Simulated assay, not measured.
Amino acid sequence: MRIAETVTFGGSGLDRAAHLRGDGAALARLLAGGRVLPLWRGKPLMQGDDLGWLAADSPVLAGAGAAVFLGLDDGVARFAQDISDWSPEAGAAGVEAGFFDASEQRHPALDDSFVFLELRGVMVQLSPRAAELAATAKAVLHWHRSHGFCAACGAPSVMAQGGWQRDCPACGTHHFPRTDPVVIMLVTRGNRVLVGRNAAWPEGMYSLLAGFVEPGETLEAAVRREVFEEAGVRVGAVRYLASQPWPFPASLMFGCAGEALDEAITLDPNELEDALWVSREEMVTAMAGLHPRLKPARKGAIAHFLIANWLADRLD
């Protein structure tokens, strides 16, 4: 797919400067003169329509976890730090439960132009570079928070290599950031596309079927298995279209096109609340927000990207 890297979180070409990750002295110099993105419980700091970058000596970062080196952005060193242990002031909006957290948090050391926001809500307004930096920061910092102990011996592990590794002092095992491969499928039959919905999603929201790739499985096999398990539809030819890093919390979405061999749906209620075939005409209406029943996948998600390009005949 020629425009694959125009998907949200993809294709900015950040220089990750991996050769610097093991040079502690160089990273210290870069941090002193670079910029840091704080994240609070997975929410990046925003300033207007851009990320909220701070100097390394900002009081916001006092007591934060070690800085993760994201890379060089046109010569500017970019880092991220987790400040999840900070507690918002009494009376500040708390984190909301559910599919999307619309709450906002402001730090007393910053003016009101700075606010911590859910990345899902701001991802489409970010530039490709800012989106890649935010996705990388969110995914890597989540990995550190959830992998503080060695999987080999259970001892506490420590951050290394500029945040791109954790080492176990007890047994010497090295651990690396995890990314989970997920297939997401644009399954079509003639003029129609197969969509489904999870019971936890907002009312009326439908998206493409998706699922994790299992050990020993190809992407093509995962597409066929997941579609059959969830909707009882057999898929024939499968081809890869595009990928998207999806830091919720740490997946890599592989967008694929599949040709359905039949259309009868046998729903697995443990996987989906509903699944149905939608014509191009209906999907155009849904994407415009005018369908009486269907709401499309959120803008910025690869499902929305694939459906929009299917409608525009731009899957080549």
Rank of each mutant, 00 (worst) to 15 (best):
Ile3Val: 12
Thr6Ile: 00
Thr6Pro: 00
Val7Thr: 09
Val7Tyr: 00
Thr8Met: 05
Thr8Trp: 08
Phe9Val: 03
Gly10Val: 11
Gly11His: 05
Ser12Lys: 02
Gly13Gln: 03
Leu14Phe: 04
Arg16Gly: 05
Leu20Phe: 11
Arg21Val: 07
Leu31Arg: 14
Leu31Gln: 07
Gly33Asp: 13
Gly34Val: 08
Gly34Ser: 06
Arg35Pro: 04
Val36Phe: 12
Trp53Ile: 02
Trp53Cys: 02
Ala55Gly: 15
Pro59Gln: 02
Gly71Thr: 01
Gly71Ile: 00
Ala77Ser: 11
Glu89Ile: 00
Ala97Thr: 10
Asp101His: 06
His107Tyr: 06
Ser113Asn: 09
Phe114Trp: 08
Leu117Met: 10
Leu119Gln: 08
Gly121Phe: 04
Met123Ile: 13
Met123Ser: 06
Val124Leu: 01
Leu126Met: 07
Ala130Gly: 06
Leu133Arg: 10
Ala134Tyr: 03
Lys138Phe: 00
Leu141Phe: 03
His142Glu: 14
Trp143Tyr: 13
Ser146Asp: 04
His147Cys: 04
His147Leu: 06
Cys153Trp: 09
Cys153Asp: 12
Gly154Asn: 12
Pro156Gln: 06
Gln161Met: 13
Gly162Tyr: 01
Arg166Asn: 14
Cys171Pro: 15
His174Ile: 02
Phe176Cys: 08
Pro177Arg: 05
Arg178Leu: 15
Asp180Gly: 08
Val183Asn: 02
Ile184Lys: 06
Ile184Val: 15
Ile184Trp: 01
Met185Lys: 01
Leu186Tyr: 07
Val187Trp: 05
Gly190Asp: 10
Val193Tyr: 09
Gly196Trp: 00
Ala200Gln: 13
Pro202Asp: 05
Pro202Gln: 06
Glu203Ile: 11
Glu203Lys: 11
Gly204Arg: 02
Met205Lys: 08
Met205Val: 15
Met205Thr: 15
Tyr206Phe: 15
Leu208Gln: 02
Leu209Cys: 01
Ala210Glu: 11
Val213Ile: 07
Pro215His: 07
Thr218Phe: 06
Leu219Thr: 10
Leu219Ala: 12
Val223Cys: 13
Arg224Gly: 14
Glu226Lys: 10
Val227Asp: 11
Phe228Lys: 10
Glu229Leu: 15
Gly232Val: 08
Arg239Ile: 02
Leu241His: 00
Leu241Met: 05
Leu241Gln: 01
Phe248Met: 12
Ser251Trp: 05
Ser251Gln: 12
Met253Tyr: 15
Phe254Ala: 09
Gly255Ala: 15
Cys256Thr: 07
Ala260Asn: 03
Leu261Val: 03
Asp268Met: 09
Asp268Gly: 05
Pro269Phe: 07
Glu271Thr: 11
Glu271Ile: 14
Glu271Pro: 07
Asp274Leu: 03
Ala275Leu: 12
Ala275Pro: 05
Leu276Val: 12
Leu276Glu: 13
Leu276Gln: 14
Glu282Thr: 11
Thr285Lys: 01
Gly289Gln: 07
Leu290Ser: 08
Pro292Cys: 10
Lys295His: 07
Ala297Tyr: 00
Ala297Trp: 02
Lys299Tyr: 09
Gly300Thr: 04
Gly300Trp: 00
Ala303His: 04
Leu306Cys: 09
Leu306Pro: 03
Asn309His: 14
Leu311Pro: 07
Asp313Ser: 04
